[in-house]
Amino acid sequence: MENHFEMGLDALRQKILLMASRAETAVNQSVQSLVQRDYDLAIRVREDDNIIDQFEVEIDEMAIVLLTKAPLASNLRLITVAMKVSQNLERIGDEATKIAKRARDLAQEPAVKVNFDINRMAVMALAMVKESLDAFVQRDPAAARAIIPRDKEVDALNKEIHSQLAQHMTLNPDTIGRCLHWIVAAKSLERIADHAKNIAEEVVYLCEAQDIRHTLKN
């Protein structure tokens, strides 16, 4: 006899995974549209964001109904974590939209000749998102813990890009508008990495029932 409550939890898990793959795709495509100056792709990323938003609403509904069934211990953590993960995924989707918006604008103007490593930053942020979700699926707290310090690297990279662009702006005032777009896009990537870190922290809570948020500040 299968357990109907477990089946409900499985459905919730499946929904999170679907949402996660959507969010990953959104980040991927937004970065792609930014780097390759792909106007159409940028427009599409913005349009697809409502699908991710819809996922968040559905996951919350499922989780609320599951919560009425008096889940305990790990089940209870799974449901609350699922809600937080979906919220973070939704924010990741929002950030991807912001990037796509900048990509759309940048695609209509000539490229800026600056040598900064937005690609590396995108790769790092994306890897964090992907790995935190893998840790969620595998329920692997060790992998999740390993992700958390990498947020600092992304932050550092963001700062570096920021100063490079600032320097470029003072030397070439005609590029200020475009450089500001780039700064915002990089900031969004940095935020995406933050959300990935949040997900990783939730995974640790899910597996070990230990809240590690705000403890690794130093």
Binding site: N3, H4, T68, K69
Partner: peptide, 28 residues
């Protein structure tokens, strides 16, 4: 086990259940 059974039985039967247990009502 009874609750699981009820969820199985609803494939074939219409079930009306009186319960004092809120979560039981919510679950099944």
């Amino acid at each position: 086990r009874i609750e699981e059974l009820i969820l199985e039985l609803k494939k074939d039967f219409t079930i009306v259940i009186v319960t004092h247990n809120m979560q039981q009502a919510a679950r099944i």
